[in-house]
């Protein structure tokens, strides 16, 4: 703890030169960034609970099918890849605004949102397939756990898409500029987090049998 006391003593520099709106804080990090990371730390416990629930229940399906019999790994690999690439486009959006390139910012934000939407469409398609094959939300503990975990993640992605589009609109109306580029960075943190959660889910839920 003492080393924490050291790094957080008196005003280090508040990030990059673009943050001229940022007031000096005791740690040198903006409040928004500290808050977002604290929130993401908290989200780990939420998703951890849902992943554990799934692991515990994944084979408890009474007479119905278990999720493992229904996975289409090729399909999910592609949608995972799409989500992974959306992290790249998100980084490029942050990079664009830190250069002050508003048009590129909006372009990359919308591409990111589009990739996210493709992922969500894939999830909707997958859910439909599972329903057709007899695994529903209410069929069994395994079904409930699978749909809850992936559904929670899907809701997070959807909220992220709304945030991305909102950020693009705010940029258009001149409310997000190079001055407050950090707003985009923080939306990006949320988006990347949703991506890393899927990295966990893809391996733990889909690939490990």
């Amino acid at each position: 703890m003492t080393d924490l006391a050291d790094t957080t003593a008196v005003g280090a520099h508040p990030g990059a030169a673009t943050h001229d709106h940022t007031h000096v804080t005791a740690t040198g990090i903006s409040n928004e960034k500290v808050a977002m990371w604290a929130f993401l730390g908290s989200e780990c416990l939420l998703f951890g609970g849902l992943i554990s629930t799934f692991l515990l229940y994944k084979d408890r399906a009474a007479d119905g099918p278990v999720p493992h019999e229904l996975y289409d790994i090729a399909f999910t690999s592609i949608s995972s890849f799409v989500l992974l690439m959306s992290s790249l486009t998100m980084v490029l959006a942050v990079s664009a605004i830190s250069r002050g390139d508003d048009r590129a910012l909006r372009a990359w934000l919308l591409v990111t949102a589009l990739l996210g939407s493709i992922f969500i469409s894939g999830q909707v398609y997958e859910f439909k397939e599972f329903l057709n094959e007899g695994l529903g939300f209410t069929t069994s503990p395994a079904g409930s756990a699978f749909f809850t975990l992936t559904g929670f993640h899907g809701v997070h992605v959807t909220i992220g898409i709304v945030m991305l589009i909102s950020a693009a609109l705010l940029s258009r109306s001149g409310r997000i500029t190079q001055r407050n580029a950090e707003a985009v960075e923080i939306v990006g943190l949320y988006w990347h987090f949703v991506d890393v959660v899927w990295i966990l889910i893809f391996t733990v839920v889909y690939l490990i049998k």
Binding site: L4, G28, V34, G41, S42
Partner: peptide, 11 residues
């Protein structure tokens, strides 16, 4: 800042 790493990874 390493503080952020600690915040996130502690969770």
């Amino acid at each position: 800042n390493k503080l952020l790493t600690r915040l996130f990874y502690s969770g």
